[in-house]
């Protein structure tokens, strides 16, 4: 390929990707009468409603990732080692949410959430339960790929012969070798949770995307600033995680 053609394609892609982002930056810093202002960005931390939504969404990310890992990692390892016949079934169950539109699920679990709120109190954090289901297909894929890349059976048998019980096998032998899979499962969950609108909106919880939408109607500068913030945050996280993923073979003490 000719060099100028390569550069042209690269430039087109750059415009396609960064154009909207730059426009968002431009719009979010524009003063209504003309000139520049950081007011919209400042509002992200000063506005009580926006700040609260940001904190809730970040907590939701953490809670979803933790619950997803705690449920999925031991289950998948166990199925692989002890119940290989159930593997197809588990895969099917984990991929199921992908085939059902979010709207349908929301309508279905609306009634359930009355009970959830009754037991856990009214906080956006209860969305964790729904979000774990939502991220299941993606995290399953990520974890499954990394489980397939190591010889789980042999590692587990070696550990067992050395005297390890099943808990030790999963926590101290298998999980540390799933580094890459756990990271990508975590990242994709964070990205999904930060962008999830349907559940939160219809179940009436004030997460960041819901608040962004709200502000889109009143103060669109703040709403665009929050959107751009989310995108930048998620991208940074991606960079950070892929960097950490490459170094996940660091030394550990005896």
């Amino acid at each position: 390929m000719k060099a100028w053609l390569r550069w042209l394609i690269l430039a087109l892609f750059a415009i396609y990707f960064f154009g909207p982002l730059l426009s968002m930056l431009d719009f979010s810093t524009k003063k209504n009468g003309g000139g520049r202002t950081g007011a919209a960005w400042k509002a992200l931390v000063t506005d009580e409603q926006v700040r609260h939504a940001i904190v809730q969404s970040l907590l939701l990310c953490v809670a979803t990732v933790v619950l997803m890992l705690v449920l999925l990692v031991p289950t998948m390892v166990w199925v692989r080692l002890r119940l290989p016949r159930l593997r197809r079934l588990i895969e099917f169950l984990c991929l199921l949410p992908l085939t059902i539109p979010a709207l349908v699920i929301v309508v279905g679990i609306n009634g359930v959430y009355a009970w959830v709120n009754y037991f856990f109190g009214y906080s956006p954090l209860v969305l964790t339960f729904a979000y774990v289901v939502l991220v299941l297909p993606y995290s399953y894929r990520a974890l499954d790929a990394s489980l397939s890349s190591i010889d789980v059976t042999t590692l587990a048998e070696a550990a067992r012969s050395l005297g390890a019980g099943w808990f030790t096998v999963i926590v101290r032998v298998v999980a540390p070798n799933l580094g890459a899979g756990i990271l990508s499962a975590a990242f994709i969950s964070v990205a999904l949770v930060l962008g999830e609108f349907t559940f939160a909106s219809l179940l009436n919880y004030q997460t960041l995307p819901v608040v962004i939408d709200l502000f889109g109607k009143s103060d669109s500068h703040v709403s665009v600033a929050a959107s751009l913030g989310t995108i930048v945050f998620a991208s940074l996280l991606l960079l950070l995680l892929s960097f950490a993923g490459r170094r996940s073979r660091g030394p550990k003490g005896v």
Binding site: L155, L162, N177, R249, V254
Partner: peptide
């Protein structure tokens, strides 16, 4: 008696060292 209580050392055909631990560990 379960494997982890049998007190038997085992060497496998496939490489079975724990990848995240050094040789000494």
């Amino acid at each position: 008696v379960p494997t982890n209580k049998r007190d038997m050392g085992m060497v496998f055909q496939a490489y079975s060292l724990f990848p995240h631990l050094s040789a000494a560990d």
